[in-house]
Amino acid sequence: MANMISDETIAYVGILAKLELSGEEKERAKKDMEEMLDYMDQLNELDTSDTEPMSHAFFMQNVFRKDVVTNGDGSKDTLANAPEKKDGGIKAPKTIG
């Protein structure tokens, strides 16, 4: 194994990914990630010093349209999907104070 993932790294990635892993899951994730990163390190065999990165297959640019409502009021259907609701709004845990 060339790549070693520390407990700190797994904890940090868990924060970024907003995932809470059990002890067993963490060990598994470390092993999987080390294996994948070793495999991905193959890309270092390629000289890309003069190569531009490609994020899309084609040239992409922002597309603008007029901000006009075309789909009517979907609030009832949208609210029906909410895990918890109150007074026509989505109920979420307190965020401040």
Partner: peptide, 18 residues
């Protein structure tokens, strides 16, 4: 997220975040 996603999805989210 931890309870709602399965193993393979979590694996890829972790790797992607890294």
């Amino acid at each position: 997220r931890s309870e709602g996603f399965g193993l393979e999805v979590k694996r890829r989210i972790m790797l992607g975040s890294f």
